[in-house]
Amino acid sequence: MSLSEAFSREPAFVPYLAAGDPSFEASLAYVEALARGGADAIELGLPFSEPIAEGPTIQEAIVRSLEAGMTPERFFEFVEALDVEVPLVCMTYYNLVYQYGDGDGPRPFVQRAAAAGIAGFVIPDLPAEEAGPLRRACDEFGLDLVFIVAPTTRGERLERMQEYVSGYVYVQARLGTTGARDEVSDHTEESLARIADWEVPKAVGFGIKTGDHAQRIVSAGADGIIVGSALVDIVAQGHAADEDTATVADRLEAKARELKEGALTGARAVQ
């Protein structure tokens, strides 16, 4: 299934986890639990040592994953080992994409990702201005390139991004770094209005923590919701309490159901 198909039937729930957090095996079980819980696509973080767009929750997940031995090659093995049907998006930073392979720009990384079954990328430190080489490699191998629209993105920048984006557009609900918040920002409706005429589905992320948040975001007009830190928190707590993998996986699955249910309720409210 392609990324845009994942959004085509009903509002999509797109969870994020850092691959390999806190271990390769546990992380496989966690991602599969999210799929059982109703995920329509999944963002998998490939950890980079300098994650400048992440808040503390995901920074710590990245450290746990790196300490457990995650590398780009292990990441691709991880993707190949996953037993899920939904499309997978690789979220990482440009240096890892750029360094992979033999100095041929981003192409070897994209080629390997395509072979492993990745459907697209989100690269938070790659604005449209620098994205030409990666966009071309994605076109060559049939992968999507998702861009993030920030509350501050306007005018020409939106046009440039619209030219390059495919799969879905990631609408950043508020300024700052990733992280769960109790309040959902009011920038969402404004941001969605600015890109109302874009053809790609609009998924909103940054700060979504509960089914109620999900409901509000979808009733504001989003085609999907992206949830990271609220799920990574569950992984972190399970790891800190030394709980077994199945218990943590059940909790993730339940949280996924709550969020997906919230999104569906939000969609009914719109109708």
């Binding site: 604005p127 993030i148 920048r157």
Partner: peptide, 14 residues
């Protein structure tokens, strides 16, 4: 060189 930063910063960079 270049400008490899999160989108949220790009308007400020401009």
């Amino acid at each position: 060189g270049g400008q490899y930063v999160p989108e949220a910063l790009m308007p400020a960079i401009e």
